[in-house]
């Protein structure tokens, strides 16, 4: 599904190398988790994949289902099936949540040459999805993320994911700021979307989320590189012993 090879990324504005050769291959239907100390480059990886400005790829490649995505515009990557649940979802005053989502869904459909979703169809689906995530009608009408609590913002990200039905979902610390119940809601939301033709890359600091969303592989990122890959037990190791041992091992 996603193949990242030897990805090197520096900041556009300064001479600072952040990703220093990331290799990662995610097969269809797989769930991968990335853990790693603060500042190791996890969010940067997610931004570079989704096409945010400010980063320069100096080496390497990233392909979604064989198509090089690094030269695509962010909206093209989205239409190709990539989705990023933001670590810090953005507030957009004056744009209703529902209007925004409908614009997004139909823009993607249009880009793929598919028919637009009718408003009844859309309403029906969003109501059902919102209900699952315990997002009430009022939140759907309000401006995107404005005045939402931390947990509500994260749930809203999952709602968008559920509506957009991407092939490759990247979740950046979707668990941070969630209480126990919200964590369950969000995980259930993610699990409901698990499918043979949909893959996940879950960035997290905590084992807790991985209890709910069972990963096939866990990667440890440090200083811009993946230094260790293993199964779910690797996350437990981090939980129990921190990164210290892994880091010396990896060095």
């Amino acid at each position: 599904m996603l193949k990242i090879s030897n990805l090197h990324v520096k900041l556009e504005e300064e001479d600072k190398q952040i990703l220093k050769g990331v290799d990662l291959e995610i097969g269809a239907g797989e769930v991968h988790a990335i853990m790693g100390p603060n500042g190791s480059g996890k969010s940067t990886l997610s931004y570079v994949l989704s096409g945010r400005d400010g980063y320069e790829v100096t080496e390497g490649s990233a392909a979604l289902e064989g198509a090089d995505i690094l030269d695509m515009e962010p909206e093209e990557r989205a239409a190709a099936g990539l989705f990023l649940a933001f670590q810090y979802p953005v507030e957009i005053p004056g744009v209703g949540n529902m209007t925004f989502l409908r614009t997004a869904v139909n823009a993607q459909r249009k880009a793929r040459g598919e028919a637009e979703m009718s408003s009844t169809e859309f309403l029906k689906e969003i109501r059902a999805q919102a209900k699952e995530l315990k997002i009430d009608a009022d939140m759907l009408k309000r401006p995107v993320n404005v005045g939402f609590s931390g947990g509500e913002k994260k749930r809203n990200e999952i709602l968008q994911m559920a509506m957009l039905k991407p092939k490759m979902c990247v979740l950046d610390e979707t668990d941070s700021g969630l209480d126990v119940d919200a964590m369950k809601l969000v995980s259930d939301g993610v699990n409901a979307l698990r499918a043979a033709d949909r893959s996940f890359l879950v960035i997290t600091h905590y084992q807790r989320l991985l209890d709910h969303i069972k990963p096939d592989f866990v990667h440890i990122m440090s200083d811009g590189k993946i230094i260790k890959t293993g199964g779910p037990e690797l996350a437990l190791e981090v939980e129990n012993h921190g990164y210290a041992d892994l880091l010396t091992e990896g060095a």
Binding site: R52, P74, E75, A78, F83, P89, I92, G94, Q108, L164
Partner: peptide, 23 residues
């Protein structure tokens, strides 16, 4: 970027943000 990452083309996203500003 947030809007574009959801698939909204740049020009549409800009218009949305202008209207959002005027709202």
């Amino acid at each position: 970027f947030y809007l574009r990452s959801r698939g909204v083309p740049r020009a549409d996203a800009e218009d949305l943000l202008v209207l959002s500003f005027l709202a």
